[in-house]
């Protein structure tokens, strides 16, 4: 038996199925890169998995050693500063591109049935990514890490009824300490990756099952062919995007390498403390509301976002042709941006 025949027998691949899988028709609007941002978070996640595994070679999840191990990675290990910077910057780009992708889906109403459940998986993916960021920078065990853990678990703890249990579960006790770091480490490198990969799998499967939403633009009426094939046309568009993003990621990591703050001090909250940029709006919200409203506000927001396809459907039914959903989206976006800017420039 020849090598080709043996391979075909032992590793049977259905050629027709392969052709069908790669010949998925892609709507014409995806030729423009700004409509094709959905893949970017996945590429960034891949970068994070690779750099994350590399960081774990040196990181020690011990409250007495975690900071020093990060200092070793940053200042002593060869190219450690670069690997760590790429890890951090890719998480930022991942969340930024997720926000842009969600805005695109929201304002083009691509979440409508039958894609409603896929939108919900998208919201779950966004939440998982944000929790990834939160648990990730907690592991550094610098001042910002410690107080982010304190505030984050405090927010969870203030949730009515189940809050105390959740906060204790996250902390591994009543206080931030070794148990907390161990748990955050497990969340960050084991549980969240598993959940995220599962959710991405379902998200991508549903995209393939429903097909990409076809958006119509002026001038498109004259175009006879409304779609183009995934392979090779769209794959090349994606490859160009990946290349540009990778260059951007490298430039950011080299020009603005991630720094290391002061080590965690459980007795002194820094006078000027700010979380990551994607938490600015929530941080400001917490300053101007009482604790219950402060904690429930973001949860209600996430709830609305999660069930948005059904809420929007309701608005369309009650106020036909009024585009209520669109204006709520604009208002929400302006509010979040307003709070973020307020937090950047306010005290």
């Amino acid at each position: 038996m020849g090598l080709g025949a043996w391979l075909k027998q032992s590793f049977p691949v259905d050629q027709d199925a392969l052709i069908e899988l790669t010949a998925e028709p892609i709507p014409n609007h995806l030729k423009r890169w700004w409509w094709a941002l959905g893949g970017t978070p996945l590429y960034m996640f891949t970068v994070q998995v690779i750099t994350g595994i590399m960081l774990v070679f040196y990181y020690v999840p011990d409250t007495d050693k975690a900071y020093d191990s990060i200092a070793y990675i940053t200042y002593t290990a060869d190219y450690g500063w670069l690997i760590r910077s790429i890890h951090r910057w890719s998480s930022n780009i991942m969340i930024a591109s997720l926000i842009l992708h969600m805005m695109r889906v929201f304002f083009t109403k691509s979440y409508k049935a039958p894609r409603d459940i896929n939108w919900m998986f998208g919201v779950v993916l966004f939440l998982l990514s944000v929790i990834f960021g939160f648990t990730g920078y907690s592991l550094v065990y610098e001042q910002m890490s410690y107080w982010a853990m304190q505030v984050g678990t405090g927010i969870a703890g203030a949730t009515p009824f189940v809050g105390e249990w959740i906060a204790d579960f996250m902390r591994g006790g009543s206080e931030i300490g070794q148990n907390t770091l161990t748990r955050f480490y497990i969340f960050h490198i084991v549980l969240l990756p598993i959940l995220l990969v599962m959710a991405v799998g379902i998200h991508v499967y549903l995209i393939r099952a429903h097909g990409v939403t076809e958006l119509k633009f002026k001038g498109d009426e004259d175009v006879e062919k409304k779609t183009f094939p995934l392979w090779p046309d769209h794959v090349f568009t994606e490859l160009i995007m990946v290349s540009i993003i990778m260059v951007l990621l490298l430039v950011l990591s080299i020009l603005f390498p991630v720094q290391l703050g002061d080590p965690a001090n459980p007795n002194v909250t820094p006078l000027h403390i700010k979380p990551e940029w994607y938490f600015f709006a929530v941080f400001r919200w917490l300053k101007i509301t009482n604790l219950l409203v402060g904690v429930m506000g973001p949860m209600v927001f996430i709830g609305i976002l999660f069930f948005w396809p059904f809420i929007d459907k309701f608005f369309d039914k009650v106020f036909p042709g009024k585009e209520v959903g669109f204006w709520i989206g604009v208002l929400g976006l302006l509010t979040i941006n307003g709070f973020t800017v307020w937090e950047i420039f306010g005290h």
Binding site: W147, V151, G154, N267, T269, P270, F283, L286, L291
Partner: peptide
């Protein structure tokens, strides 16, 4: 306790205002 009852940050004693101030959420 010097732990803020809001979300657990540490308060600072500000002599001028005779107040404890929490830097996390003011």
């Amino acid at each position: 306790s010097t732990v803020c009852t809001h979300l657990g940050c540490t308060v600072y004693w500000q002599k001028d205002n005779q107040e404890f101030y929490c830097p996390c959420h003011a």
